[in-house]
Simulated scan of single mutants.
Amino acid sequence: MRSIALYNLKGGVGKTAASVNLAYLAAAHGIPTLLWDLDPQGASSWYFHGEAEELKARKVFEGTSPAGRLVKPSPYKQLSLIPADLSYRYLDIILKKVEPPREALRRLLKPFSEQYALAVLDCPPSLSHLADNVFAAADRVLVPAVPTWLSLRALEQVQAYFRTEGFEPKKIRPFYSMADRRRSLHRELLENPPAAMARRYPAVIPYASAVERMGEHRAPLAAYAGSDEPALLAYAELWLELKRDLGL
């Protein structure tokens, strides 16, 4: 099983939208996929109509219950979900007590390889014990970056953290998200990407009302948007780039 994390130190960059759409597209291509929502806000869980059971989640991370008990079905074939809720805000405290400190998530993911070919981790925007576990467990860390200097600064901070803490920098794969070509700064950074975007996936996710309507439909784009919707085509391109990169 391969695993990817959607992560950014900065919020509001389209991380959850990418998690939901990539997980859906992977499953639609016949790849058994598990989406694990690690963000206490539970946005991915909400899109897929999933509800977590707080007591079970706590026992899993404390190592007293198998992680498989957290899995819920999604409305889509080949796609399962481990939902989050506000209790996940305590994960950092729990993981701090686990030994070795960065291996808990990798250990919890391992049994799922018998059933799934891809795990998608939707992560909260923080540098924490949970983030360390994600960075250690994921084969790729996808970082959506809005074409603005503040968003790119957050990407650079993540890259610097990887180098400082001994994580493999080559795991990081940024991509442009919520890009609006009507804005001169966005156009400039799309056409002349800075060094931080050197390992980026070429797909550019546009700022689009169709993506905002995911909340109205509580569904991935492909469930309601037309096949010619630019945002859906961009996510499909991103999925194909990821698929090639992971050898799926």
Score class of each variant (00 low, 15 high):
98 V>T: 09
100 P>A: 08
102 R>I: 02
106 R>D: 09
106 R>L: 12
111 P>Y: 00
114 E>D: 14
114 E>R: 15
116 Y>W: 06
116 Y>G: 05
121 L>K: 10
121 L>V: 09
122 D>F: 08
122 D>A: 02
123 C>V: 11
125 P>T: 05
134 V>K: 05
135 F>C: 04
135 F>G: 08
136 A>W: 12
137 A>W: 03
138 A>L: 06
138 A>P: 10
139 D>G: 12
140 R>F: 04
140 R>M: 06
140 R>K: 13
141 V>N: 01
143 V>R: 03
144 P>V: 06
144 P>G: 10
145 A>G: 11
145 A>V: 15
145 A>M: 09
147 P>S: 10
148 T>H: 14
151 S>I: 03
151 S>K: 06
152 L>H: 07
152 L>P: 04
152 L>N: 07
153 R>H: 12
154 A>Y: 08
154 A>P: 11
157 Q>C: 05
159 Q>H: 05
160 A>C: 01
161 Y>H: 09
164 T>P: 12
165 E>K: 09
165 E>T: 01
166 G>A: 02
169 P>D: 03
170 K>Q: 15
171 K>L: 06
171 K>N: 04
171 K>Y: 03
172 I>F: 07
172 I>P: 06
172 I>Q: 09
173 R>N: 08
174 P>H: 10
175 F>L: 08
178 M>V: 12
178 M>L: 15
179 A>C: 08
180 D>Y: 00
181 R>E: 15
181 R>L: 15
182 R>T: 07
185 L>S: 09
185 L>H: 02
186 H>V: 02
186 H>W: 03
190 L>P: 01
190 L>T: 04
191 E>S: 14
193 P>Y: 08
194 P>R: 07
195 A>S: 12
197 M>Q: 07
197 M>G: 02
197 M>Y: 05
198 A>M: 13
199 R>H: 12
200 R>Q: 11
201 Y>C: 06
205 I>D: 01
210 A>N: 00
211 V>D: 00
212 E>V: 09
212 E>F: 02
213 R>S: 13
214 M>W: 06
215 G>V: 04
215 G>Y: 01
216 E>T: 13
218 R>Q: 13
219 A>G: 04
219 A>S: 07
